[in-house]
Design a protein around this nucleic acid. Structure first.
Lengths: 162, 162
DNA sequence: ATTGAAACTTGATCGTT
DNA sequence: AACGATCAAGTTTCAAT
């Protein structure tokens, strides 16, 4: 992969774009070249589907880390703490959970060094007390769409009532 | 929302489609009607972006549950156990982690009843010993693309080397 | 709110370099 | 491999119901 592929991937990621035309607009790379490059990226398994989702392991983000991040209880600070966590490089998902006040954070990184940076970044936030992380060996499933679930009776009722 | 919206949403979810033409092919609903309905769904905030991702809370899946599922250690059983977890209604993400052999599972459901069903389903799998769940209060961030990260030096190097 | 047909925009292909 | 020109396919608009 070269610098041109990188520009295309960057555009897909940052603009959430999935069309050759838009990529062309953003990068200035001619439509037909974009088309050609996208095909190559597809063959390499970097771009996975029509939604231009990418295999993060194929762009160097091979380590997946799931962390529990415990925060000091402070009225209304949770959203802002959560957002600060979300801004850290590599962090893709941040959930604020009930009960013991804490965040569950999923991040994708390149190497051990970035893992250390990540944990350090979490702990450098004032309100954060403690973190505990697990490495993912395999991502068995990762779907953002509720496939199959639309057959569920309760769900169908809920939708129709809206 | 009515039965026609439901058919459109079902098609988007199960076929991972993001084009009016394809939805038309799958449902038989005329192109221009699909177009009109999609606009409405967009205004209602159900469909979020050009990738036709949907706000799960707007389709009745308002409860997010993150569970740790501990499995009996058995050689090579992990993938199959993981896949069985992934097939359970409501489950969107399944990660198999290092160390203490267990799965981290993220699910979206409609109500308390479905939460119970979910936990019961996990525990009905032979190899599974114990589960522990947390409710999500707010999803602070949920991105499948590595936005911003493409600025990271280590990552850029990793990509260019491929 | 729905639709068929028209107008327009974009995506895919192809031939040349 | 890159790309401008061409053609096929898709998306969006519009007027009628």
């Amino acid at each position: 992969m070269d610098e041109k592929d990188l520009r295309i991937l960057k555009t897909i990621a940052s603009e959430r774009i999935n069309s050759p035309e838009r990529i062309h607009e953003h990068t200035g790379i001619p439509k037909s070249t974009v088309h050609y490059r996208i095909e190559q990226l597809r063959e390499k398994g970097v771009i996975l589907n029509d939604l231009y989702e990418m295999d993060l392991s194929k762009v160097g983000l091979s380590i997946v880390l799931i962390s529990e991040v415990y925060a000091e209880y402070e009225e209304d600070y949770h959203e802002s703490v959560g957002e600060r966590i979300g801004e850290i490089e590599g962090v893709n998902q941040v959930y604020f959970t009930m009960g013991d006040t804490d965040f569950i954070v999923i991040a994708h990184v390149t190497d051990r060094r970035m893992v250390e940076d990540l944990v350090e970044s979490y702990e450098s936030i004032d309100e954060i007390r403690r973190t505990s992380s697990k490495f993912v060996i395999t991502t068995v499933k990762n779907e953002s769409h509720p496939i199959n679930d639309f057959e569920h009776e309760t769900l169908v009722e809920a939708i129709l009532e809206e």
